[in-house]
């Protein structure tokens, strides 16, 4: 379980998170919504211990990770895997090497076993033809797929973290990525691999998530399911999710 307890973080004068509190189970499908610069990505980075809060505690499975050293954080990070915006692929490596990265670093598998695992993942994600392409030769959607393949290759994460996974993609490709995210999180709780998706694309979030958290000025303004999200009284939030009303009205739902 993830627990944020009075977590505050500032970058200079800019208060990003202000005494933030929330709890999440690993099997949950959570979307963190908010405008740009509201600290959505920072939450993911805090969960992974990539940044430390100025104040407050973060507990992962009951363990306070704010005081852990980099080597102690390794075990905590193994519970998660992250897909950054734009994929964050290693641009000096081809697709195969990117996906094999964790296997080569972490395991002492022979090369044939690594190759088998990489090809299996690329097949599963439908990018087997791109195996020897360099990241700059891939489309945005393919880059995200490779990033997802890489994040699944090395470890068996309990929860996936997606940072703007569909941002900058055309609607069709974004839809494909959403389907992939859903596919990866099938099954019944508590065995299901959950995810936290950080996005400002409300319609994409609505396709995949079951719980929605809206952040404004470092605080949680809304935390609930889709039905209550659509019924929110908060004018700014209503304006933020306006797209959602439009889409649902258009489709007659």
């Amino acid at each position: 379980m993830i627990e944020f307890r009075d977590v505050s973080l500032s970058y200079g004068y800019n208060v990003v998170l202000d005494k933030l509190n929330f709890k999440a189970q690993f099997h949950e499908k959570i979307a963190i919504l908010g405008a740009s610069g509201e600290g959505k990505t920072t939450i993911l980075r805090l969960i992974l211990g990539l940044v430390r809060p100025d104040e407050g505690k973060i507990f992962i499975d009951g363990q306070d990770i704010t005081e852990l050293s980099e080597s102690e954080l390794r075990d905590v990070r193994m519970k998660f895997s992250i897909v950054f915006q734009e994929g964050a692929l290693f641009d000096s490596m081809n697709v195969y090497e990117n996906v094999a990265f964790c296997l080569r670093e972490y395991t002492r598998y022979p090369e044939d076993k690594i190759e088998k695992r990489v090809r299996e993942l690329l097949n599963r994600l439908g990018i087997e033809d791109a195996v020897y392409l360099m990241p700059e030769e891939l489309s945005g959607g393919m880059q995200r797929r490779v990033a997802i393949a890489r994040s699944l290759a090395g470890c068996d994460p309990e929860m996936m973290l997606y940072d703007e996974a569909t941002t900058g993609l055309d609607p069709l490709t974004a839809d494909n990525i959403c389907n992939l995210i859903k596919e990866l999180s099938t099954g019944e709780p508590p065995d299901r691999m959950g995810f936290i998706i950080v996005t400002h694309k409300v319609t994409d979030a609505a396709k995949v998530a079951g719980r929605f958290i809206y952040i404004r000025k470092g605080n949680i303004i809304f935390d609930g399911d889709l039905v209550s999200l659509k019924k929110t009284e908060d004018a700014e939030l209503r304006s933020f999710i306006n797209e959602l009303y439009f889409e649902y009205n258009e489709t007659g739902r």
Partner: peptide, 13 residues
């Protein structure tokens, strides 16, 4: 480009 973050997340120093 978050490549260093990816290394840290995957336990690479």
């Amino acid at each position: 480009g978050h490549q260093v973050d990816i290394m840290r997340v995957h336990g690479v120093n």
